[in-house]
Simulated scan of single mutants.
Amino acid sequence: MAKRRWRADPARYGLLLTDLHMPLLNGFDLTAAIRREEAPGRRLPVIALTANQMGSEDGRYLAAGMDGYLSKPVPLTLLQDTLRYWLTQTSAPSAAPPPPASTPNGFAAPPPGTDRPAFDDQALERLVGPEADVQLELRQRYLGSLDAAMAEIAHAVAAQDWRALGMTAHRLKSSSRAVGALGVGQQFEGMETAGRDNDGDAVHRLMPGLGEAVDAVHRHFRHLQTCGGDPVGRVICVDDDPVQLGALQQQLQALGLHGSEGFTEGGSLLERLDLVDTAPVLLLIDLNMPHMDGVELIGHLARIHFAGALALVVGPDPRVIDTAERLARAHGLNTLGHLRKPVHREALSALLQRWPRFKAG
């Protein structure tokens, strides 16, 4: 895809940032292909993004025609400096000028005899800046990808597909370090090595430690969200219709609530709630779902002592609204009211005003 787009309009692009290890066309081959096809007198600057400290690979990236590299996760200030340097060149150089030095990003191995910290809580601030809502959204996205990756790894272990396991571990090694989850990143690095070496015994030895590290990440991120006495509110939507679900999440984002989560059935929601402090949560629940409807879900929420707020999302039939709301209140759940489908932004905004944790963006 990247090569096709560049080939269609080479003059459109002023810089290529490319990962090195990709499944179909890796960064080395992509760069070599571009160098072969470039017009005389033009040169597209190429910066490699790597999860490894390059070291012995320096010669390889230079031989492929790259102009520099950045070690992931890339701090925001270093990325800004790199973009400013390469995108302010007055003309496309025919030979690469010396790039700005790639500085250590703080995730290199610690000196011998020291312990690697499990978490770096300033990592995301260096990466994306100080905005708390942006950091929260990235942590939530990471947790979703982390849980999905653990399912992929379990499947790969069952199938003894060590190559697939190694690729998943490589991907999560980078993203874990980017969000500051250094301990689980180290575990994924070990898994990546075991997968690359087709060492099933090592994989089985590493699995318990990886599981413990993943649990620690969930606990630590939950602590970050709730510490300080004024936890950041989050919205979780449940609707079996993915179109309605997506539309609701887009409206929430337009109202300043970034990073909402969506589920298409109640079982997955309950598993998610088991991993978070529910006090800052607002649930928007579709009443009419096929496997576990909203009324049944309300009963489960009462049994797990859900401490957040909820609102019901209902279709054109109003008969079940009063029953469901009375049931929720009888269980002691904080019920803000209901929304009718299709949900209009004005109605959603009015409901959010009744939620004390709502802070419009």
Results as ranks from 00 to 15, higher is better:
residue 303 R to N: 10
residue 174 S to P: 08
residue 113 G to E: 02
residue 161 D to R: 07
residue 29 D to L: 06
residue 60 R to P: 00
residue 211 G to Y: 06
residue 260 S to Q: 00
residue 93 P to D: 04
residue 148 A to N: 12
residue 240 D to W: 03
residue 192 E to M: 14
residue 2 A to F: 08
residue 250 Q to N: 14
residue 177 R to A: 07
residue 356 P to Y: 01
residue 113 G to T: 01
residue 22 M to C: 06
residue 304 I to K: 04
residue 284 L to Q: 03
residue 63 A to L: 10
residue 320 V to M: 15
residue 322 D to E: 14
residue 323 T to M: 14
residue 54 M to G: 07
residue 242 P to G: 02
residue 56 S to M: 14
residue 210 L to A: 05
residue 238 V to K: 03
residue 320 V to D: 14
residue 22 M to F: 08
residue 316 P to I: 09
residue 8 A to V: 03
residue 155 H to A: 15
residue 257 L to P: 08
residue 44 L to A: 06
residue 58 D to Y: 15
residue 315 G to T: 05
residue 272 R to N: 07
residue 358 F to Y: 11
residue 182 L to K: 01
residue 240 D to I: 03
residue 289 M to F: 03
residue 29 D to N: 06
residue 349 S to K: 13
residue 340 R to D: 11
residue 261 E to H: 04
residue 77 T to Y: 06
residue 163 R to I: 09
residue 161 D to K: 10
residue 299 G to C: 06
residue 121 D to Y: 03
residue 220 H to M: 07
residue 70 L to Q: 05
residue 46 V to K: 00
residue 27 G to M: 12
residue 250 Q to E: 14
residue 131 E to F: 07
residue 159 A to S: 08
residue 250 Q to G: 14
residue 86 W to G: 01
residue 338 H to P: 00
residue 312 L to F: 10
residue 19 D to K: 06
residue 327 L to D: 06
residue 353 Q to A: 10
residue 344 H to L: 15
residue 271 E to N: 13
residue 53 Q to K: 09
residue 30 L to N: 11
residue 168 T to K: 12
residue 120 D to M: 02
residue 341 K to H: 05
residue 262 G to H: 02
residue 255 L to E: 04
residue 43 R to F: 10
residue 248 L to K: 02
residue 14 G to P: 10
residue 109 A to G: 00
residue 46 V to G: 01
